[in-house]
Simulated scan of single mutants.
Amino acid sequence: MEIKDKVLEALKNSAEPMKGGEIAEATGIDKKEVDKAIKALKTEGTIISPKRCYYGIAE
C-alpha cells in the first residue's frame, strides 16, 4: 500500500479533519512523508483543507 493510500485511509476513518501530525501518528509514517502525500493528494483534488493545516476527504 502506498503512503498516499494510507493517508487517505486514515482520513476516511476519521470523523473530523486531521492535521498532518495526527495522520502521521495514526499511520505510523514519518511526518515529512505524510506532508508529501498530502501535497500530492491536494493537487489531485482527492482531499481538501477545510481550515488551515487540517485535511479531509473531498466530497
Rank of each mutant, 00 (worst) to 15 (best):
I48C: 10
A24H: 07
E59P: 15
K36E: 12
C53N: 12
A58Q: 12
E22L: 00
G45P: 11
A10Q: 11
K51I: 06
E59M: 03
A37T: 01
K39C: 07
L41C: 09
A26P: 03
T43P: 02
I29S: 06
K19R: 14
I38E: 01
C53G: 10
K4A: 15
I48L: 12
T46V: 15
A15H: 11
V7E: 02
E9R: 13
K31N: 10
A24S: 15
D30I: 01
K32F: 05
I3Q: 05
M18V: 06
E44D: 15
R52S: 09
A10R: 06
A40C: 05
A15I: 10
G45R: 11
P17M: 05
K12W: 10
K12C: 01
K51N: 10
K31C: 03
I3H: 11
A26C: 07
A58R: 15
E22R: 05
E33M: 05
E33H: 03
D5R: 13
I29Q: 11
I47M: 10
E59K: 12
M1K: 13
E22M: 00
L41Y: 03
E25M: 09
K36S: 14
D35I: 02
I48E: 14
I23M: 08
R52T: 07
D30G: 01
A40Y: 11
S14Y: 11
K4F: 00
A58Y: 11
Y54G: 02
T46Q: 12
N13L: 15
I47A: 09
K12D: 10
K42S: 06
G28N: 08
K6H: 06
K19N: 03
K36R: 15
A37D: 01
T46N: 06
I29F: 09
K12R: 15
K12Y: 13
E16T: 14
K32L: 11
E9H: 09
R52F: 00
L41A: 04
K19H: 07
I47K: 07
Y55S: 01
G56M: 09
I38L: 15
K36A: 12
S49G: 10
G45M: 09
K31T: 08
K32I: 01
T43H: 02
K32Q: 10
I38W: 00
D35H: 04
I57V: 13
P17C: 08
K4L: 04
P50V: 04
K32Y: 09
I38R: 04
E2T: 15
D30P: 02
Y55N: 03
